[in-house]
Simulated scan of single mutants.
Amino acid sequence: MSYVFIALTVLLTVYGQVVLKWQVDLNPGATIENLNPRALLSLLLNPWVVSAFAAAFGASLFWMAAIGRMPLSKAYPFTALSFPLVAVISVWAFREGMDWHKIAGTALVIAGVIVLSRSGIH
């Protein structure tokens, strides 16, 4: 069950990041950098953004359930799987580039998770 909680943590985290990127791209005046208070408030009250915040909260709850059943040093590396998932979704959803640096980095992250998941910690 620990791995299900970890998977839900990762998936909710990825959901939140992708939704926030999508909504910020639709509302460029709402970022802290280009601060337009009205646009920022509108963004913060946007149901999609609220759902991203709720996903982050849900991810935290599932994370607490996971680390209550598994050593932190064994569970934590799996959170890195959000990086390759976000990278792949970003290429598809936001037309971001995927060059060999990103491919190599993503492969290294995945390899690191595999190596760490095979550690002798039980």
Rank of each mutant, 00 (worst) to 15 (best):
R38A: 15
G16N: 10
L20G: 00
A59I: 08
A111D: 10
T79Y: 07
I110F: 06
L116P: 03
G97V: 07
W22N: 08
N34I: 10
S117C: 06
A104N: 09
S73G: 13
R118M: 09
L45V: 05
V14Q: 10
G112Q: 08
I6D: 06
P47C: 10
F62L: 01
S51H: 09
V4A: 14
I67A: 01
G16Q: 05
N46Y: 11
V113F: 07
A93H: 05
A30D: 04
A107I: 12
S2N: 06
L81A: 05
V91A: 12
G29Q: 15
A39N: 04
V86Y: 01
T106E: 03
Y15V: 09
F53V: 14
S73T: 12
F62D: 00
S117N: 15
A39T: 06
T9G: 04
W100C: 00
A52G: 14
A93L: 14
L116W: 04
H101E: 07
T31M: 07
A52T: 11
A93N: 01
V14H: 07
V24Q: 12
N46S: 09
W92N: 02
R69Q: 15
T13D: 13
V50L: 15
L35C: 14
V24D: 02
M64D: 02
L45K: 13
S42Y: 02
V4T: 14
T79L: 14
A87Q: 05
T9D: 07
S82F: 11
Q17N: 14
S2W: 08
L45G: 08
D25S: 12
I110D: 03
L8K: 05
A107K: 02
G105N: 14
P77Q: 11
A75S: 09
V88N: 01
V86E: 04
A111R: 06
V88W: 05
Q23V: 12
E96N: 08
I89G: 03
I114N: 02
T9P: 10
L45P: 01
A39L: 05
T106M: 15
T13Y: 03
F62Y: 11
N46E: 14
I114W: 10
G105M: 10
K102H: 04
V19L: 05
V18E: 02
A56G: 12
F57A: 15
G120P: 05
V50M: 14
G16S: 15
I67R: 05
I110N: 03
A55N: 11
L44Q: 11
D99H: 10
D25V: 00
P84F: 00
